[in-house]
Design a protein around this nucleic acid. Structure first.
Lengths: 407, 407
DNA sequence: GGGACTTAACCTAAGAGCTAGAAGAAGTCC
DNA sequence: GGACTTCTTCTAGCTCTTAGGTTAAGTCCC
């Protein structure tokens, strides 16, 4: 936890420079000094070192305004590549990113419902990585690491990371280990919501020095808690299961086995059911992926001012508002951001109602300084988020690749 | 956040040595080096410096076992004094501590129900501090600071700390400022639950490298969330209001104005009411401080195996278990510790039931590695906790008094 | 076209910290 | 009394930061 030797100071300053350049694009060494909070000499030192290592690159000059023109420096996108993986229930999505987290290639692989065994998936992913790299002409050595977002609970258990994902029949799968063995690349597995939260922190609305709660509402309901830009993982990395907090004791059954969870009231199936019960048009026969159609119809109807649809939204906001109010009271975040495919689709109409409900329930002081708004990134950004986690670790270690291999 | 210059390394090492000595009592310089994670040379350097400044003191020698005997060093209790204050609704309790947090004096002042205005209380406290110091013969200059635990919401708002305590009619009272003005001492105000949590972290069961949730059940219900030994405060310092998270949407009314809060089901009044409704003996007419009598009768009856009493506990555990399960799912702590006067009195019988209920509701992975037990400190440790916060800040700053004055 | 002015980047010395390993101090034990 | 142990202190070497001066690379005006 604590820094010990003078070398760590350098690493901390390297990290600070890297984060600064990521945020503020190519800037001059002088600006780096100011923004990263180091002296000009140190900035020049560190930048020189990082340039030599190739992590940074020259990025042109600023036109002079009376003096020596500033030469700009920025993250060198070509220093390395990162693979971000969105492991879904029906498909695996692999995306290749450069160090600036621009996507350079992608592959999507369908997953047969019959072969969701962990080893099979790991083989599939390893294969996909190979294909991705071949297709993009990137040598394996240039890959910094592999980030994976999975739908389920990720648990740190005495050194190894285990994945519990009931929806695909996984229980205690050491996915990171499996992938590292197969690809030879540093692999990092995280819950999909945490990956999305990280992406939102880097590319979305979340400020770096804030405590932000990213709430994702889709078929399932999850959250990602960012403390000053870093995801809070908890004791065993499973923190953030907001969807399974109690909203109505002994209420509706939830797929987690308990009753009255938030997810049982604001997850897509629940909203769709509510809409159908109100006489709404489900689009397709309910069940299966019919939820998506039903939510879409609900959104369209609500936008058109349909009173039944608005009633469904109001009812949903009543539950969601209570859920948000719980977060506000317990966690006291600066900001709550709502995303997920349901959250984003219904958000524009839903959010004001949620704010009203939460405001009526939450304690005044924490609620009054809260900002509530929509995610800027869609639910398809899980792969980006997973890759972001790798880059985050790389930067945090001061731009040392060695730090990625070790846990 | 980040360390910048080589001097900060020294401060970090000083802090590390101080925390080590606090935990592990007087030990030799060599042990300090090992436990604090620095080289022997640095340990000797830092210890020498701190000895000279008086923060540390010699503490005898270890008998030799074949070589030069180790000379022990420890925190010097007499380096300075700290005032810890428990601001209650009916009384103010002031306690004086030495740097080792041993209590050396105390004063308790009744608060008239008619004069709870902030200024009056501040005057009362300032007066009490003077009396405390006079009585103990401690000069004001030796006091490191004033820590206060208050019953209510403490809010950091653009630089100043405001207290909202409806129970004594306070709304936005800048108590720290009022006290600093009157006493001339660095003053730090915090929520009482956070103070208790800090005390529990230092003197109780909470491990230093763990995420611990300290849950306090009394007339009100609160919690204190310790991340690696440090209290998490949230965006505006009000995090931890567990008692006002929703348990039953639109359920029983809570004194916060909302409905269905956890506190409305497991706070002392709710339990007492449940006990009376079950035909239990309330001891005194209910209402007012009759809750204490009712809880006591309930506990005695339950200990005697009274089935009605056990039923009340089971019902209470159903609510409390859900509340704990929410914490487990959302926060994923290593450990949940239950305290508060109700929690401590009913705990031995209640806790197993709560564990059972929570286990039935919470997600398996985070629950399986959870430890659930009782607080080691009673609810009377608020003043100790408030003083602990001051010492914590002093140590964190590497033992520099100057750091206490500034925010 | 040349000199004065501006602005950015680099260089150098001084100060502070850390580590490793050697030297010194203070005992025990035979 | 000398050998051995164990703890503490000292010394040399290295790294890092900062402050302030120097060099580089332009603009602008006469």
């Amino acid at each position: 936890m604590t820094r010990r030797t003078t070398r760590d100071v350098r690493l901390a300053n390297r990290a600070s420079v890297l984060y600064t350049l990521r945020r503020e694009g190519p800037i001059s060494r002088q600006d780096i000094a100011v923004r990263a909070g180091v002296s000009a000499a140190t900035a020049a030192n560190v930048v020189g070192q990082l340039l030599e290592e190739g992590v940074l690159g020259e990025a042109g000059q600023l036109p002079s305004n009376g003096g020596r023109p500033a030469s700009l420096t920025g993250i060198n996108p070509r220093y390395g590549a990162i693979v971000g993986i969105d492991l879904g229930e029906t498909a695996v999505r692999l995306e290749l990113f450069d160090l600036a987290l621009q996507r350079t290639a992608e592959v999507e692989l369908p997953v047969g419902a019959d072969d969701q065994r962990a080893e099979a998936i790991a083989d599939l992913v390893a294969d996909g990585v190979q294909r991705l790299l071949d297709g993009a002409g990137v040598e394996r050595e240039r890959v910094l690491g592999l980030g994976v977002g999975v739908p389920g609970i990720v648990e740190d258990s005495s050194g190894t990371t285990l994945v519990h994902a009931p929806s695909i029949g996984w229980e205690g799968v050491p996915l990171a280990t499996l992938l590292a063995e197969r690809t030879g690349l540093p692999s990092f597995v995280s819950n999909g919501a945490k990956a999305l939260g990280t992406a939102e922190a880097w590319f979305g609305a979340a400020g770096e020095d804030q405590d932000v709660m990213v709430c994702l509402i889709g078929t399932g309901v999850g959250a990602s808690f960012l403390q000053h830009g870093a995801v809070y993982r908890g004791a065993s990395a499973s923190a953030g299961e907001w969807g399974h907090t109690t909203l109505v004791l002994d209420g509706d059954p939830c797929r987690c086995g308990a009753h009255g969870c938030l997810e049982a009231y604001v997850g897509a199936p629940a909203i769709a059911r509510r809409w159908l019960a109100a006489g709404g048009d489900g689009g397709e026969p309910a069940g299966g992926h019919g939820d998506e159609a039903a939510i879409e119809r609900l959104a369209v109807a609500a936008e058109a001012g349909d009173e039944r649809a608005l009633g469904v939204l109001r009812e949903t906001a009543r539950y969601l508002g209570a859920g948000v109010s719980d977060l506000v009271n317990l966690i006291n975040p600066d900001r709550v951001v709502v995303g997920g495919w349901v959250g984003l689709r219904l958000g524009p109409l839903l959010l004001p109602l949620v704010a009203e409900q939460a405001g009526g329930r939450a304690l005044r002081p924490p609620f009054e300084q809260l900002t509530l708004d929509l995610c800027r990134l869609g639910p398809d950004a899980v792969a980006l988020g997973a890759a972001t986690m790798i880059v985050d670790r790389f930067f945090a270690a001061g731009g040392q690749r060695a730090a990625l291999a070790a846990p």
